[in-house]
Write a protein that binds this DNA or RNA. Structure first.
Length: 841
RNA sequence: GGGCGAAUAGCUCAGCUGGUUAGAGCGCCUGUCUUACACACAGGAUGUCGGGGGUUCGAAUCCCUCUUCGCCCACCA
């Protein structure tokens, strides 16, 4: 915006279907109610009310931390406008044959009572058991084959056992029957490539209704799919499962049933062995319940066709993903994409815009419509709407278009701002959201929805755990805002996170965690206070009118440093949009916010405050033309520093900028122009750089010889004639900054006792006589040496003590720098200390 | 199991295409309440840049390998 572009940031939120429904159901449960008691309409009303009451919190937080969004355009996926986009997208995809109804095994959450997409069922590494169960042959019960399974309870739904057709061990059994234990039911031995001879026993039981792969095998071999686990995860005879769930197992929870069945197999001598097994178990990403594979009818999107352009968009450089490491992850997902289950069996969400007609024959009996239907458009018979709702991410995926007015392709916002420029988000929703926005963008708009995807890091606690509500290890940003201000929060996070890197914060020590930003914001404020106090509110000469000949060395220096800072900040951010596609260099550069923050901080603190402000103090207090020059330069430089910093710390900078002398009422830093470096500066500030180096050298000498702070000392600067004439003008400054009376000389005084060589052939000479008490200094050094001798002797004695050779974990030994986790001996530690002391001595 | 990434000061991390003496914040040590700021100022200490090998005039940076962490994906029951 400050660079003069017309910009827009649309704030908003999604309706978070499953998560919100869960919360409201929990509230109902507390009142002793279930959603069924209210009915669909009442439940949706109540949820809408809940969202209305609580949904503003996030937006309020965004405002509090200074998100400069256009709040008049605040969007919501469940609003009438965005819902219209959802219908449009659905119908278009349906008409193209990209949305279809599928009968297959999907991920089912028995707690949320809905299906989930592959992405919503998160694998968690779990230590489970692999049970080996023997199934006897029907012909010859003395022989048996052994299957391996992690979920014995599903055996009630077994319809076959499969072996690999190439597996010599079992070739003779193919086509024969085995007896399913417990149920005493004959099932065939089939040959299928799916069975891996190398895993377990090489025999796999086939349960089509409760395993996605088994379902495919069952389909290939035309087997039935008996359902033995119901929607609640409870054992029950479902479709095609008559007589498959014995009375004592019926109504048991799936995990209780597992224990029961294992026990029974054991007693019947059918459990060959049980081994520890590491595998990934899928959990519901909203409630963490173990997901149950379940046979059901769901709506899917055929993804392969949508993935093509999205993949090409990234490969061609139309869209860049930062940090770069996620590009490979994105491409892998896109190239191995699977169809997306978009229907959910909940009530909070966009109802699938499909109506069914009982009178018409397929395909006319299934009608996708933009408008609500009451009667069939083909035969006028009454129709009923599908009861499922759409995955929230279906509507979120349309966000960059729907918030700008799509499907109205002539919408002003859509024409002005699509494609957008930068999407900032967390890497964990790269597939959920980002990938789908890109696919929809290409599908419906023919172009990527944005040019840059910036995937930021994660806030973690001191143990490296992700901050989360359930763990209670999070930091409420509002607490930080209240304690130190939004700018402190912003600066700490922006400066502290490298591209895509996580940030570690201590929730129990906010003071320490946010010291960086708090200190910086305070410093900035204090510089402003100094300026307002010393420059005052009187008229200030326009900087543009100040001639180069009027500037001092310090002025030239700070202006040169400002130029450098502006250039470096611009480089850190890089171009905001590509020319068509990103060039190879641009593809991985830019958006280095931490480099931007560090550059601005260094300029303001280490250059402006530490040197220029100090060098200017005397000038500001001395009436005359130079006072006016100093005022003009100081205001100019600080004004530009505020502009540079505004995107990072908007509140402090805006408050100060509004108070600067010459501020025009009604103008805002937020919309002020971005600074640019001077094209051709006449002076690079080298003169003041020399002064600075002399001051630094003097300070080192003063500190080294412990010269009392108040005491003024004499020094000689040996320099060329040219340097003498120029630098001598800075004598007063040197006296102030280094508390040293400097005499510029052409040769070394004979009394010089120490020298400090400076760059550029200038030599600093300080006569030490009278500055230190030589006798006292010698005594101090001797005492220090004696102390070292003593320590050494003590150590040598202990080195020879065998008792110290015991091994100890390094972390236990305090006060020594040893790598964590490494084992060492106390003797090693002592030797290291010994060597250190020898070096010192 | 496949893929990707990281390892740099006590801690958390920068270090862009290999090039003077490897940086920052916090912490630590020594001084200082110097009239903008003690949330500050001045000065200081601390690194075999994970181990080993290689390429190069030159490596924290490029290559190989080992070790240790982390992330993503995955139908091995």
């Amino acid at each position: 915006r400050m660079k003069g572009f017309e910009t827009l940031w649309v704030p908003g939120m999604d309706h978070a279907g499953i998560a919100t429904q869960n919360v409201v159901e929990k509230q109902l449960a507390a009142e002793g109610l279930a959603r069924g008691d209210l009915g669909r309409e009442k439940f949706v009303e109540r949820t809408a009310k809940f969202v209305e009451e609580t949904g503003g919190v996030i937006l309020q937080q965004l405002k509090s931390i200074g998100a400069s969004a256009d709040w008049t355009r605040t969007a919501y996926t469940f609003s009438p406008e965005l819902s219209r986009a959802v219908r449009e997208a659905f119908v278009r995809l349906f008409d193209r044959g990209l949305i279809y109804r599928g009968h297959r095994v999907i991920h089912w959450c028995p707690r949320c009572l809905t299906s989930l997409s592959d992405e919503e069922a998160e694998g968690q590494d779990t230590t489970g058991a692999l049970y080996h169960i023997s199934y006897p042959l029907m012909d010859d019960r003395s022989r048996s084959i052994t299957v391996a399974t992690t979920r014995p309870e599903t055996m009630l739904g077994d319809v076959a056992v499969a072996v690999n057709p190439e597996d010599e061990r079992y070739k003779d059994l193919i086509g024969k029957f085995v007896v399913l234990p417990i149920l005493d039911m004959p099932i065939p031995v089939i040959a299928d490539e799916y069975a891996d001879p190398a895993f377990g026993t090489g025999v796999v039981k086939i349960t089509p209704a409760h395993d996605a792969n088994d379902f495919e095998v069952g389909r290939r071999h035309d087997l039935p799919s008996p359902v033995v686990i119901d929607m609640h995860g409870v054992m029950n005879e479902g479709m095609d499962a008559l007589g498959r769930v014995p009375n004592e197992i019926a109504d048991l929870d799936r995990f209780d049933a597992r224990a029961h069945i294992v026990k029974r197999l054991e007693s019947e001598g059918r459990l060959v062995k049980k081994e520890v097994h590491q595998h990934a178990v899928r959990h519901c990403y909203r409630c963490d319940t173990v997901v149950e594979p379940r046979l059901s009818d769901q709506w899917f999107i055929r993804m392969s066709e949508l993935a093509g352009p999205a993949l090409e968009g990234a490969r061609s450089g139309r869209v860049r993903i930062l940090p770069e490491k996620w590009v490979g992850v994105y491409e892998h997902w896109m190239t191995n994409i699977r169809d997306w289950n978009i229907s959910r069996q909940i009530w909070w969400g966009h109802r699938v815009p499909v109506w069914y007609c009982k009178e018409c024959d397929p395909p006319n009996n299934v009608i996708a419509s933009r408008e609500d239907l009451v009667t069939c458009p083909h035969c006028n018979a009454p129709v009923v709407q599908d009861t499922d709702v759409l995955d929230t991410w279906f509507s979120s995926g349309l966000w960059p278009m729907s918030t700008l007015g799509w499907p109205n392709e002539n919408a002003t916002d859509l024409k002005a701002f699509y494609p957008t420029d930068v999407l900032v988000t967390a890497p964990e929703i790269l597939f959920f959201w980002v990938a789908r926005m890109i696919m929809f963008g290409y599908e419906f708009m023919g172009d990527a929805p944005f040019h840059s995807v910036y995937l930021h890091g994660t806030a973690r606690d001191t143990q490296g755990r992700k901050m989360s509500k359930s763990l209670g290890n999070g930091i409420d940003p509002m607490d930080v805002v209240k304690l130190y201000g939004a700018d402190a929060l912003r600066y700490t996070l922006i400066a502290g996170m490298g591209m895509g890197a996580d940030v570690f914060l201590d929730p129990n020590d906010l003071d320490k965690s946010f010291a960086t930003g708090r200190n910086f914001a305070t410093k900035l404020w204090n510089i402003g206070r100094f300026l307002l106090m010393n420059v005052g509110t009187g008229d200030v000469r326009a900087f543009a009118d100040v001639k180069a000949s009027e500037l001092t060395r310090a002025d030239h220096w700070i202006l040169a440093k400002l130029d450098a800072a502006v250039r470096e900040c611009d480089r850190a951010i890089g171009p905001v949009k590509p020319r068509g596609t990103w060039s190879p260099e641009e593809l991985t550069a830019g958006l280095r916010l931490n480099e931007f923050a560090e550059t601005a901080r260094r300029f303001v603190w280490n250059e402006l405050a530490d040197w220029y402000v100090e060098a200017t103090k005397a000038r500001l207090l001395t009436e005359g033309p130079d006072q006016q020059v100093a005022r003009a330069v100081l205001v100019h430089v600080f004004d530009h520093a505020l502009r540079l910093l505004h995107p990072i710390v908007p509140f402090v900078t805006e408050a100060l900028w509004q108070r600067l002398p010459g501020h025009v009422d009604g103008t805002f830093l937020a919309t002020a122009s971005w600074p640019s470096a001077r094209a051709n500066a006449s002076d690079d500030g080298a003169g003041f750089e020399a002064v600075k180096e002399i001051v630094e050298a003097m300070r080192r000498i003063r500190s080294e010889y412990a010269i009392a702070p108040g005491k003024t000392i004499d020094a000689f600067v040996v320099a060329s004639a040219a340097a003498r004439t120029t630098l001598s003008e800075e004598s007063a400054l040197l006296a102030r900054l280094a508390r040293t009376a400097v005499t510029f000389a052409s040769s070394t005084p004979a009394t010089a006792a120490a020298t400090a060589v400076l760059s550029g052939g200038t030599e600093l000479v300080v006569p030490l006589e009278g500055l230190i008490d030589v006798k006292k200094e010698c005594e101090r050094i001797q005492a220090e040496l004696a102390n070292l001798e003593k320590q050494l002797a003590s150590l040598v004695a202990r080195l020879d003590n065998p008792g110290f050779v015991a091994r100890a974990p390094a972390a236990v030994v305090e006060g020594e720098r040893v790598k964590q986790g490494e084992w060492t001996t106390k003797r090693d530690l002592l030797r290291a200390r010994y060597e250190g002391l020898c070096g010192k001595a």
